[in-house]
Amino acid sequence: MKSDLLRFADWTDPVPPAEREVVSITEETDAARPPLLFVPGLGHGAWAFAEHWLPAAAARGFAAHALTPRPGSDLRVQVHDVVQVAASLPRQTVLIGHGAGALVVAYAMGRYPAKAAVLAAPVMDGWPTLGAALRANPFGTLPAMVGGRLRLSRKQLFSPELPEERARELLGRIDARPRRELVTHDPAPRPVGGPPVLVVGSPDDRVVPRTSLDRTATRYGGAPLLFPGMGHDLMLDVAWAEPIEAVLDWLGKELKS
């Protein structure tokens, strides 16, 4: 029903066209492999994947793309953009969403027949995530509850091993301004075509509680793949290579089956 309502809204109030920022690495990749489309979370852009995860995927033969959300866009607009970019790629695409981007991917799967999907540190359960944010970073979270900026902290996003200077640099690039729907959204629709879905995260994530990881993985018929000691930003933390290599290994096995 929710998917039908989203489509009705698109027909009656179409999403306005816009130039989309997509960062891609496609040189010397295997044309027989499906392309990967990375979708960043709240306050992040394509840059969050461009440094590590895109080159790692390309090195394994996957054409890798990352989409930056439109500034100030709501869930409907972000889903629309993901579906449009995925549909423009030459082969059936693997969708990989991080944080709130995983929620966007979950909704997009209700409209686009993804080859597979990966939900990394997924922000799918709004109220538990809000509770975790208030416990870990109350002064940075409270302004966002009244329309202000969400000031994410180092301990929420990164492990202690990440150098302080690097952490400050990354935090300075994040501009997180959450919308109410991040908490109040309806459950995501059933994925079209039943693609395999992998949930990855960290039991030490201070944004997404472990119970939420388990609940999301169960929703898609599996268990979460966990990386202890890492923060929420798996793709930027010190051990960034571990989750992406595991994801690519999983894709290799799923695409052969």
Rank of each mutant, 00 (worst) to 15 (best):
A86W: 09
G110E: 05
F139H: 15
L157C: 02
A86S: 14
Q78M: 13
G131I: 14
D125K: 13
K115C: 10
Q156P: 11
E169G: 07
T141R: 07
V83R: 01
E164M: 03
P71M: 11
N137H: 08
E165Y: 07
A176G: 12
R111N: 03
N137T: 02
V118Q: 06
L134R: 13
L162G: 01
R173N: 07
Q84N: 07
P122K: 00
D175R: 15
D81V: 10
P69C: 14
P90S: 07
G72C: 04
D175F: 12
G131S: 11
G72D: 09
T68R: 02
S153T: 13
L89E: 08
A117W: 03
A116K: 05
T68V: 05
L67K: 02
A64M: 10
L95S: 04
A63T: 13
A116N: 06
A117V: 01
P143Q: 08
R168G: 03
T141V: 15
G72S: 09
S159M: 10
T68M: 05
A133V: 00
H65N: 15
L134A: 08
R180M: 12
G101M: 11
L67E: 12
S88E: 08
R135K: 15
T184E: 11
G72P: 10
V83T: 05
V118Y: 02
S73R: 10
P138F: 08
V123A: 12
P122Y: 01
D125F: 15
Q156I: 08
R111P: 04
M124P: 09
G101K: 01
E161M: 06
P143K: 11
V82Y: 07
V82S: 14
A136W: 00
A121C: 13
D81C: 09
R180D: 11
E165K: 11
P163F: 07
L152T: 14
T184S: 15
P128W: 02
K115S: 14
R154N: 04
Q92A: 08
